[in-house]
Amino acid sequence: MAERETGHKYAFFPGCLVTTRLPYIEAAVRKSMRRLGAELVDMPETTCCPEPTLTKALNQKTWLAIAARNLSIAEEIGLDILTPCNGCYGTFKTVNYIIKTNEKERVKINDTLKKVNREYKGKIQVKHVVEALYKDIGKERIKKEIQKPLKNIKIAVHYGCHLLRPSEIIQLDDPEQPTFLDELVEVLGAKSVDYERKMMCCGGEDLKIHPQTAYSILKEKLSSIKEADPDCIVVTCPLCMIQLDENQALLQRRHRQNFNIPVFYYSELLCLALNINLGDQHFKLHRIKADEVVKKIVKS
């Protein structure tokens, strides 16, 4: 569906968390995508994707209809939908899969959408920002544009759950031994370091029900990362970012757990490698100080 002749073009769906809490991710995504020749078209009238535990668990029908409504907006624009959030990605991928493979459900969903004068035919694709970078724009293109390679930077990659699972629906990479994000990191000139708990969930979903559990999972994850001694962590999801960055800082403050590992959204590192100026304020918004790593890159 994406128009290949005029470069890549997507309907952009930043999602609630990026829009309201981590707008710096949005800034990095917009700037880096523009540099790589991809156009992002804003989507009017969108709502929460919506979050599954809050809607699917309560009423599957509601979850399907709201997600389909958002998808219908992109379909109306005539573009594939692009999101920087693993959560929104998981919701859209799954609902899109259901609509494309289950005729009965599609009819039912559209019966609901009719009430708000919308229809979703299931004609578009759902893409994650890193998926678009890997599959549409490609490593070669990125490599060509790099001005400041991330030399001597060791990075711990955290994929996040919904970027890969359930693999039967997502079909982006192997759910147990994925490589594409590591490849994207290495294209920037950095080194992706292995660590034992690489495929473990960040635990962020439990913040709203049992923060103690969320912190314990985070501790396990960060301890494992620390052993590999990376310069920073890279994530592809705002909730992972909140958990790994903000709550790492919280652990540090409250529990004296000094991991001190800066966290970046992939597009931020991409901006640095492409020598895109994100502004003075940008990295100040990170809770774990990222200055040293940023300096190390900018200096090179």
């Binding site: 709502t47 809607t55 209809a65 009430k115 708000v116 919308r118």
Partner: peptide, 20 residues
């Protein structure tokens, strides 16, 4: 700038329609 409360009316309708 964020357009506030966009789509909320439709969302409310869906929530009512689907029984939630």
């Amino acid at each position: 700038k964020i357009e506030t409360e966009t789509g909320v009316e439709e969302l409310k309708k869906i929530i009512k329609e689907t029984g939630l």
